[in-house]
Amino acid sequence: MCLAVPGKIIDTEEMDGIRLGRVQFGGITRQACLDFVPEAQIGDYVMVHVGFAISRVDEDEAHRTLELLRSLDLLAGELGPPPETP
């Protein structure tokens, strides 16, 4: 429940007053809110928890952690399925 997954910001946009980014976690891409990491830019790595980036992390660390989560089969579970269209 308190896991966070590191991913790379590949683009950002502003929607309904919120700063959103597409974040790549290995092969999986998800949208995440970037309002809590105002300093993070495209290309930066962030730790994402329930769709919100909560900290910036170093690229090498991010890759190592991702690999571990993948080897544990935790990655997909932690990111969940893509959101269903309402």
Binding site: M1, C2, A4, D16, G17, I18, C33, D35, F36, H49, V50, G51, F52, I54
Partner: peptide
């Protein structure tokens, strides 16, 4: 959730009011 999840949940409520 714990403190980890609280900012996300707070933001959802904040945003609901804003919209």
């Amino acid at each position: 959730g714990f403190e980890t999840t609280a900012p996300a949940n707070a933001m959802a409520v904040f945003q609901a009011r804003r919209e």
